[in-house]
Amino acid sequence: MKPEEFDALCRLSRLDLSQEERERLRGEFDSILKYVEALRAVPTEGVEPTAMGGTAAGGTAQVHGEARPLRADEPGGSLPRAEALRASARQDGIFFDVPRVGSA
């Protein structure tokens, strides 16, 4: 992968990496990608992909072969706000506090 393509992938992955780390990971990325590309050789024409989860409609191939119905859509309890906010590095008691969204 070209350095500029890899840099774009790092941005897409929200990973800010040092130059040195980028170089190392790019080399490893290429060798792992080469390794998994062996899969292209397996004939899969007409084979349905395995899916996870399931709905009442079912239909897709499940990991454990069972289409699980969705549970009833009923309101239930939820975490108290203070509990949900507690682990955040920055919050104001009502919202999570974050820097500006988007560039100016």
């Binding site: 992938l9 790092c10 941005r11 897409l12 992955s13 929200r14 990973l15 800010d16 990496l17 780390e21 190392r24 990971l25 490893e28 990325f29 792992i32 990608l33 998994v36 974050v98 820097p99 500006r100 969204v101 988007g102 560039s103």
Partner: peptide, 30 residues
């Protein structure tokens, strides 16, 4: 980070280890 994207990228870049980064990068690509 000055923006939310920069903050997220800085957090993830600094605090994930190399194997987690490898897998996120390959998974995001694939």
């Amino acid at each position: 980070g000055g923006t939310v994207d920069e903050m997220m990228s800085a957090t993830r870049g600094a605090l994930f280890g190399p194997e987690v980064k490898r897998r996120i990068l390959l998974g995001t690509f694939a």
